[in-house]
């Protein structure tokens, strides 16, 4: 970790709110990888994930002047924008095809990237069987390794509600593990 703790995020945000391009760039560079990762689990393809990430940060720029510092981390605000963008994306789009990442994306992929893409496809297909809220909680809790409290702040629910949805979703996921078709998705891990 860089020795940057002394730089208070609030000052960066305040500067970004005032139109400081350098501060906006700093926010983008800090949070884009995190937001992209979150979006990539939920979007059907890399191209869509990139487009959605761009939308999130354009919304950030648009919303910064009105953004107010609160007890909720800035990152949570971005996650919320991202969640809304993903939900809107699926409302606008036709039902997702079952084509894999490598087929839906026209760009050629090297072998290791192809494997990652296939694993990502597997995860997406599994996640697609959950509600939007369950997907958010599963991703944030176990992929991003956020605490219950952090997840509660991001999704705007109580910690109790997060624990409850987490419990329900993991039961469903565990049941899916027992089904043959999911074993196929999870190859190499639990076969």
């Amino acid at each position: 970790m860089n020795n940057v703790q002394s730089v208070n995020i609030q000052h960066i945000i305040q500067r970004a709110k005032k139109g400081d391009t350098e501060a906006v760039t700093a926010l983008y560079q800090q949070y884009a990888p995190v937001i992209y990762r979150y979006v990539a689990y939920r979007a059907p393809s890399t191209t869509d994930a990139e487009d959605l990430t761009a939308e999130v940060f354009l919304k950030m720029v648009e919303g910064l002047p009105a953004y107010r510092l609160t007890g909720v981390p800035f990152e949570a605000w971005l996650y919320r924008i991202a969640a809304a963008r993903v939900a809107d994306f699926y409302r606008r789009k036709k039902p997702i095809s079952e084509l894999s990442e490598s087929l839906t994306d026209s760009r050629p992929l090297p072998e290791d990237a192809l494997q990652t893409a296939q694993e990502l496809d597997n995860l997406r297909r599994v996640l697609r069987q959950f509600s939007e809220e369950e997907q958010n909680i599963l991703i944030l809790r176990f992929v991003e390794r956020k605490s219950h409290k952090d997840v509660a702040e991001i999704i705007g629910k109580s910690v109790t509600a997060v624990k409850s949805v987490q419990h329900r979703a993991l039961i469903q996921l565990a049941r899916l593990f027992g089904e043959e078709k999911v074993r196929h998705y999870l190859r190499g891990e639990h076969e």
Binding site: Y36, F142, L170, A174, F177
Partner: peptide, 18 residues
């Protein structure tokens, strides 16, 4: 435990990078 296993599987998800 199956629930813990399910959660642990998610932790091994690939980390896509832009």
């Amino acid at each position: 435990d199956p629930l813990i296993q399910a959660a642990a599987w998610l932790t091994s998800a690939p980390q896509p990078q832009m």
